[in-house]
Simulated assay, not measured.
Amino acid sequence: MPDIATRADLELLLRHFYGRAFADPVLEPVFETLMVIGLDDHLPVMCDFWETILLRTGVYRGSVGAVHRALHGRHGFTDRHFDRWVELWTSSVDELFLGDVAQQAKSEAAGIAVGMQRRLLEPSRVRRPECPPGSADW
């Protein structure tokens, strides 16, 4: 299997992941709006985000905080949501890619989940170690 090396690789990974998330009983309610409007507008932003993190392009200029705070307010994220997101992301990466960047994609996702938990859930409920150095922040 190839490693993640291009934006096209990231788009493939994201389409695969979102296809699974849209059908997942834990994550589907969180992604319901995105399912209705479709990936066409969202995918370029997510490709920019992951391309900046994994391929160091610097193309992402957004902020994920406000969107995820609104989603948390609407759906009440729990540890289960974050665990399932990381689980689906990790297995999606493993199904398509193998290599250093693929491993980094999995590590970064775990760090992102920890950061979001820390910001969105009560600090006393976060049960994971600190984000690894270099993890994406919002």
Rank of each mutant, 00 (worst) to 15 (best):
L14C: 01
R15K: 15
H16A: 12
F17P: 01
F17R: 05
Y18E: 00
G19F: 04
F22V: 05
A23R: 08
D24R: 07
D24H: 08
L27A: 03
L27I: 07
E28F: 10
V30H: 04
F31R: 01
E32F: 12
E32K: 13
L34R: 08
V36K: 13
I37F: 11
L39P: 00
D40Q: 10
D40M: 08
D40K: 14
D41V: 15
H42N: 02
L43V: 03
L43Y: 07
P44Q: 01
P44A: 01
V45G: 10
V45H: 12
M46T: 14
M46R: 09
C47H: 11
F49A: 01
W50M: 03
E51G: 14
L54I: 01
L55I: 04
T57P: 02
V59I: 09
G62P: 03
S63I: 07
V64N: 12
R69E: 12
L71G: 00
L71T: 00
G73A: 06
G73W: 07
R74C: 05
H75W: 11
H75G: 00
H75E: 01
G76T: 00
D79G: 13
R80C: 12
R80P: 01
H81N: 11
H81E: 06
F82W: 05
D83H: 13
D83G: 02
R84L: 04
R84F: 09
W85E: 01
W85H: 04
V86F: 07
E87I: 09
W89V: 07
T90D: 12
T90V: 09
T90A: 13
S92I: 08
D94E: 11
D94C: 12
E95I: 05
L96D: 02
L96Q: 03
F97K: 03
G99R: 08
G99Q: 06
D100Q: 14
V101G: 06
A102T: 04
A102D: 03
A102E: 05
Q103C: 15
A105M: 02
K106M: 15
E108H: 15
A109K: 06
A109C: 12
A110F: 11
G111N: 05
G115M: 07
M116L: 14
M116P: 03
Q117C: 07
R118G: 11
L120N: 02
L120H: 03
L120Q: 04
E122K: 09
S124H: 11
V126R: 08
R128E: 12
P129R: 06
P129E: 06
